[in-house]
Each structure stands twice: as structure tokens, then as C-alpha cells.
Design a protein around this nucleic acid. Sequence first.
DNA 1: CTTTCGTTTGACCCAAAGGTCAAAAATGAA
DNA 2: TTCATTTTTGACCTTTGGGTCAAACGAAAG
Lengths: 217, 217
Amino acid sequence: MNELPPLPQRSARRRPRASELKRAAIVDAALAEFSRYGLHGARVETIAELAGVSKTNLLYYFASKEILYVEVLKRILDQWLAPLKAMSAEQEPLDAIDAYLSAKLAAARDQPEASRLFCLEMMQGAPLIAPVLAGELKQLVDEKSEVIAGWIAQGRLAPVDPRQLLYLLWAATQHYADFATQVRALSGSGLEDPAFFATALATLRRAVLEGLKPRAD
Amino acid sequence: MNELPPLPQRSARRRPRASELKRAAIVDAALAEFSRYGLHGARVETIAELAGVSKTNLLYYFASKEILYVEVLKRILDQWLAPLKAMSAEQEPLDAIDAYLSAKLAAARDQPEASRLFCLEMMQGAPLIAPVLAGELKQLVDEKSEVIAGWIAQGRLAPVDPRQLLYLLWAATQHYADFATQVRALSGSGLEDPAFFATALATLRRAVLEGLKPRAD
DNA sequence: CTTTCGTTTGACCCAAAGGTCAAAAATGAA
DNA sequence: TTCATTTTTGACCTTTGGGTCAAACGAAAG
């Protein structure tokens, strides 16, 4: 039999479309499960059922549970970091922060699963995305912290620690995704309700943005 | 042999002290593990090792993993709700909120595991503490929301949705416990560092409390 | 039609982990 | 000392669940 073809040339030439769709369906299902039960708690068979494939078939596309997990993380990382990247020194500080707040709140509404998955991963010590934290994310945060620090130095923003400010914005918005169950139990609705969304945003604007206005310190 | 003693009288009279200590040690160890890996991810044997007992012996004190989990949740529920209970209408609004902020931030520093455990439980839909959410917690939140609404009606606090305000305070403080890994990766330290704690509190005071001051609306 | 390569499946394997059991060891009253 | 009760242990059972394997299927190329 053939020992080995010199050039495996894996996904070259015409790539099958159907299989890509299937991979996507599996990743979607995996996000739903992982975001709810974490890497350990999620069951491969459940993910397979959710995606409408057999467990064995899933393992054909993703060699192991952990590989699938990492794949899910990779897929949502970019959209996760995107809003912060938009913040730039040229903007009016309060406008920029307002826009970021809105974008993150909308993200918490539209991709709550992504938020929860990151939260879960973080609470376990971020074993699989530690490199991203210490690398790409840290660089991005350092950069934007400089922007914020610049605004403060110009007296256009209240003197707060830039990083702490980012934590506050993240916490305030992601909370609606991560603690959706609690919010729903206490308020009776969540961000998917436009009225609720408006109230949440209004509260954040008043409580956070007002306090960030510069004063004569 | 005896069929059944008429009165089992379980923990009556002199209760053994040593066994209570052992139960406590197990619950402590369980909190550490559950808060990190969740109900599904945590291993009973690991908890047993951490507590310094054999797995079988642990199962002697707690009939099942889930029973132990619920026990852990019950044990930390009170200390979890305590700070909010302290808030009363007689206080000066901004002082009360300031005190609450400080208390919750200190709790995030001193009992980060409790914070993470609640976060995990919440993200899974709070299957085991849903009754508490809909019952005790909701009642407490409704009550304190009234207090806050009263302050607002008196013009002593900015007009924000009381519940949303509570969410903001929770989110902002618990974030330091739940996302400790991320905070440490980005800031290089956490709440256990007094300087960091002070900066965090100062930022929250400036960003949140300032915005809550009443104005001529 | 036949070959071929990618896909799909069900049967199977195996290790991990929760939980059981009966016997032994401590503990403590009488 | 003795007897009963509580605690502790190691061996074992059972289920769960991730992963393997070889055979079968199917569509496109030859």
C-alpha cells in the first residue's frame, strides 16, 4: 500500500462547504454547552445532540473535547476584544466611554453565552487562555489605559485609575449576561426586553458617566 | 434484633465536638474546590484529600456530592446577604451606599471563593438556589429597593433604578473576586494588596458615588 | 461501473469518579 | 470489663463519559 503521499495537501483546492457548516454547527452547540457547564461539566454527547450529529461524528471533526473547547474560545475572542479596540484618543472621552458602555451592554444582550464562557474560564484560572490574557489582551489594555490616562492628564476626565475604570465597565455590563438568572429572578426581565435595556443603560450612564465628568480638583 | 428504636433522637443531648470540626473542615475544602471547578468539575476525592480525610469517610458525613454542595451554599448564604441587610432608610444615602461598597469590596477580598461559587451556580441557572433567589433574596432586594426609592423621592439620591443600582454595586465589587485571574494578569496585583484595594475603592467612589449625588433635575 | 476519498455510524474499550458495603477500629457509657 | 454506638477504612461495584476502531456509506472522479 502507499506509504505516505508526498504532499498531503489537506484543505487545498475545492473545500467542501457542507463540512464547514457542520463544524460551525458543532461549535455553536459547544458554545451553548460550555458556557453553561464549563469544560468539565459539559458532555460531548449533549453537544453532539444539540448540533444534530452523532458523538462519533463530532469526534471526527474535533479530535477531542478540549480541542473543541479551545476552538470555541478562539472563535469568540476577536468579537470579545473588538469594542475596546474602537476606543481612540481622538474621541471625546465621555463619548468614547459612553459608546463603549453601550457596545458592551449590547454584547451582553446579544452574546451572553460568550460572556459566560469567558467568565467560567476566568474563574478556573484561565488555564487555556492565559497566554492571551498576558499577551494580546494586556497589550490592548495597556494601550487603552494610556489613552485614558491622556484624557485625565488633559483634565477631560475625572482622575481615576484607567485599568480600574475598565474593570468597572466590564463588570457592570457583563454582569447582565453572567448573572442573567439572578437578574431575571429579581427584576422579572433581562436585557432582551428593550425597556429593561434602556433602564440599565440609563442607570449606568447616570451612575458611572456622571461621576467621570472632570471637576475642579 | 431490634426492629427500630421508637425514638431515633438524632443529634440530641451531648453532641460530639470532633465530628463537627471535621464536617467544617470538609465544607471548607469543598468550598475551595467547588468555587474553582463547579459542582460537576470538582472531584470528591480531591475535596477529601484537601480536608485530610478519606473519600469514604467524607461520604459518611455527607451522603452525596450534591448534598455537600448544597451544604456549602447554605453555609455561605448568610454572610453573603449580610451587608445588604445593614442598609437602612435612616442612613444618609451616600454614606449607606459607600459603606455597602466598602463592605462588598472587602468581602470580595476576604471571601473570593464564596463569590466565585455563587457566580458559578448562577451561570448554570442556579438550579440549587433558585428558591432562595425567588424567595429570601428577592424579598430583601425588594425591601432595600424601597429604601433607595425613598431616598430618590426625597431628592437625596440621583434618580436611578434601585435594582439596577444594586446590580452595579454587586458587579463592580464581585468582579475583583470572580475575575481575579484577569485582574492579576492586567494589573499585576489584586485586592489583597492594600494599595490596590485603595485604588479600586477610590475609583468606585469617584465613578459611582459621584454620579449618584442628586442634582437639580 | 468502479475506484477513491471524505464522511458517518454503531459497537466497543477503558479510565475516572461517585457511591456501596461489611468489617474493623475507636469511643464511651454502665 | 463489656456492650453499644459512632467513626473509619479498604475493597468493590456501577455508571458515566471521553475516546477508538473498523466497517459501511456516499458522492464525485475516472
